[in-house]
Design a protein around this nucleic acid. Structure first.
Lengths: 101, 101
DNA sequence: GAGCTTGTTCGACGAAAGTCGAACATCGGT
DNA sequence: ACCGATGTTCGACTTTCGTCGAACAAGCTC
């Protein structure tokens, strides 16, 4: 299994913004904002298994998350530092936004 | 003609991100970042008239721009201050990103 | 008013995105 | 070896999005 995790500098801003411009994915990002890694299955997202998998893939391929395989589980974590280096302030600004405006 | 220009606080952050997550619209926003207002027609966007109109509408309805009608022209300007108040740092972070990563 | 300019609106089209169930793969445990 | 748990992949479907040409609306100028 090859997990595609691109370099942030190869990801256009518009791609990062697109990845963040979805309620389900933003919820995932918020949940990961604490810094800890977390098993994919532990998220309460209200969507089917296939959809969840899809969203994690979008986040990963946009360079926002990194995934570690451990047994049958996958640990996801936010690429906070890299993101901060590539797009300073962007993630913080998005996370600072109210959850339901 | 009623120009729909919502309050920023009523616009979900995902909507703002969606509006910014497009090359044509981001180019418009960059061009307006200087602060001056500008006539819609003066943008070199490489798309048809109808498409251009569509993008300006998306930006306006996402709360990113304000439009002033003057004769047959429309002056557009960025709602920088309001945006900064509603989503501090967001616009700056996006604008700071390289044009072609 | 005729004609031009600026811009919007109206379908229409194809591409992309979000969603799901079902099937599949992998690993752990019994 | 079997079974259950965790995820991915595969169509399929629906909705949304970006794009365009054509038609329309409104204003300016001669």
């Amino acid at each position: 299994m090859e997990l595609h995790e691109p370099e942030l500098r190869e990801v256009p801003v518009t791609a990062v913004l697109s990845a963040l411009a979805d309620d389900v994915r933003l919820e995932i990002v918020r949940a990961l904002a604490g810094g800890d890694e977390r098993i994919c299955g532990t998220f309460e997202l209200g969507v089917a298994k296939a959809t969840r998998s899809h969203h994690f893939k979008v986040l990963r391929e946009a360079g926002l998350t990194r995934t570690r395989v451990a047994g049958t589980s996958r640990y996801v974590r936010l690429r906070r530092d890299e993101l901060e280096r590539a797009y300073p302030g962007l993630l913080d600004a998005v996370l600072a936004a109210p959850t339901r405006p």
